[in-house]
Amino acid sequence: MNKTHNQKAWFMVLPVVLLVAFSAVIPLMTVVNYSVQDTFGNNEFFWVGLEWFEEILASNRMHDALGRQVIFTTTILLIEIPLGIFVALHMPKKSGFWSSICLVLVALPLLIPWNVVGTIWQIFGRIDIGLLGYTLDQMGIDYNYTQDSFAAWVTIIIMDVWHWTSLVVLLSYAGLKSIPDAYYQAAKIDQASRLSVFRYIELPKMKGVLLIAILLRFMDSFMIYTEPFVVTGGGPGSATTFLSIDLVKMAIGQFDLGPAAAFSLIYFLVILLISWVFYTVMVHSDKEAGL
């Protein structure tokens, strides 16, 4: 399309620029401001440079929270992505009554507000009034997610799998449906086994969609806050205190604005870096595929 050169178009962009500047840039700059200053109390601040950053990067508490977060994210990705692809391979392919029913039921957990998910699972896991807790108790398994850190981890991981696997299922299903039938017919002529069809036709064609799914799940699980907070509030002791829960404890519980601001900047930059890596990989693989 031919674009005309017209400087007056700036007036149309101005409202967006002002709104974004007011609601995004100014708070970000405030956080940067807090991260390089310390306070005597009574709203008096003085410059300390990078002291908060050094203290945060060396603190054991942050390393523990980061370790827990990495373990959580890795486990979640390892469970959800294969399970999502597996379920998507078995969804009904013809667009008819059953495929619509399956799509609606599969998408249902995605629509629930996140703290409601936390509340559902909190009650679901209780031994006295929850189905899961009661069943496990009747089977004789020792299950108490408020006191046992392994049970707390298992509960949070299963809750996240329940909540978000459907996203991977829907994205993979969309990717699978876009493969033209000619590929499957060629595979039938060659008498390829089901596993070969998956490895050589379906997986390469789904690569773009899978990268998006992995990126979305990685970012979401790295930033997870409401669901573990509602179910365990940080876990027995600090067993399920992930990065964001730790950050909020520091910022609002202890009101240490300096370290909290430094922490949030580091958090933001880590997520930005990894998203950039994913984005570069995606764009590179798109170019290879000739798109």
């Binding site: 379920v87 078995h90 189905l131 899961l132």
Partner: peptide
């Protein structure tokens, strides 16, 4: 039908907490 069996298991897994919610 293998696909139908797997889908049924998965959908039961998804619906259990929602069934409990409606029950309560």
């Amino acid at each position: 039908n293998k696909s139908a069996f797997i889908m049924t298991l998965y959908i039961i897994f998804l619906m259990l907490p929602i069934y409990w919610l409606i029950n309560m």
